[in-house]
Computed example of a mutant assay.
Amino acid sequence: MASVRHFQVTFDCEEPERVALFWCAVLGYAVPPPPPGFEAWADFDRTLPPESQGSMFACEDPAGLGPRLFFQRVPENKVVKNRVHLDVRVGGGLVGDERLQTLEAECARLVALGAVRVRLLPADGINESCIVMQDVEGNEFCLD
């Protein structure tokens, strides 16, 4: 039986480059180099048919450990809660006030980038606290 070693997470969105650059800032990801023969992605994008220009963007973990994120333009707006979301792990191993302070500091940084804080899910004796947030297009994610 074959095992999957690499995968990509794909976001449907309205403005692929804007959402990708947000996630680059959140995760420390980088935009991959443009295809050979192009100085910048904008140069490559101009070679596409007009209806395809600006329709996709990607970012990658510079260390090569995390999945590639791909962003594709879709015609419809987001209308319901995500069925899959990212957990941004910033509080690993921390509990109580130390964990909350770490989550709140990262939440403030992400709000400055355009994220929206939705709610705090307090520790409940089984799970530690986390903060539910939305990215620049309303996709839910958790600070965990």
Rank of each mutant, 00 (worst) to 15 (best):
E39R: 14
V80S: 14
S55T: 07
G66S: 12
A63S: 13
G138D: 10
F11T: 02
A30P: 00
E17A: 11
S3C: 08
E39F: 08
R5K: 15
A108R: 12
Q72E: 07
A112S: 13
P122E: 12
V84E: 06
L121M: 12
W23C: 07
Q72T: 07
G66I: 04
T10R: 07
L100K: 03
D97E: 15
S129K: 02
I126W: 09
V116I: 11
E104H: 05
Y29K: 02
S52G: 05
L21M: 09
R117D: 04
P50S: 11
S3Y: 12
N127C: 05
A105Y: 05
L65S: 11
V4G: 05
P49T: 13
R99G: 03
A2S: 14
T10V: 14
Q8C: 12
F57N: 01
C13H: 05
N139W: 05
S3L: 15
F44K: 02
V132Y: 00
P67C: 15
G96S: 03
Q101H: 12
V118D: 12
V111F: 12
M56V: 14
H85K: 03
F57C: 11
C59Y: 01
G91Y: 06
L21W: 01
Y29M: 06
R89E: 11
P16G: 07
C24F: 02
M1W: 08
C59Q: 02
V79K: 13
P75S: 08
G54H: 04
T47G: 04
G125D: 03
M56R: 10
V9A: 15
V116T: 15
E140N: 07
P50Y: 04
E137P: 13
W23E: 04
F141Y: 13
V26I: 06
C13A: 10
R18P: 00
V84A: 14
R119D: 11
N82G: 02
V132P: 00
L69Q: 01
T102L: 07
V90K: 00
S129A: 15
V136Y: 06
V88W: 00
R109M: 09
P49S: 13
R99P: 05
R99E: 05
P75M: 03
G96Y: 05
F7S: 15
C13I: 09
E137V: 08
K78V: 02
E14F: 01
L21A: 06
V74S: 09
M133L: 08
V116Y: 03
C107V: 03
R73A: 09
L121E: 09
P33W: 10
R109L: 12
V90D: 00
A108I: 03
V90W: 01
A20E: 09
G64L: 14
V84D: 04
E15T: 14
L86K: 04
G125T: 06
K81F: 01
A105M: 07
S129V: 06
V116N: 11
Q134F: 07
F11V: 03
C107L: 06
L103W: 01
A105K: 12
A123L: 02
Q101K: 14
R5G: 15
D97C: 06
M133H: 01
P122S: 08
M1C: 08
D45Q: 08
A20S: 15
S52D: 14
A108G: 06
A40F: 10
S3M: 15
L94T: 02
T47P: 03
T102K: 15
V90N: 00
F141E: 01
R73L: 04
L21H: 10
K81C: 01
G114W: 06
E60G: 04
F11I: 04
R73Y: 04
Q72R: 07
Q53T: 05
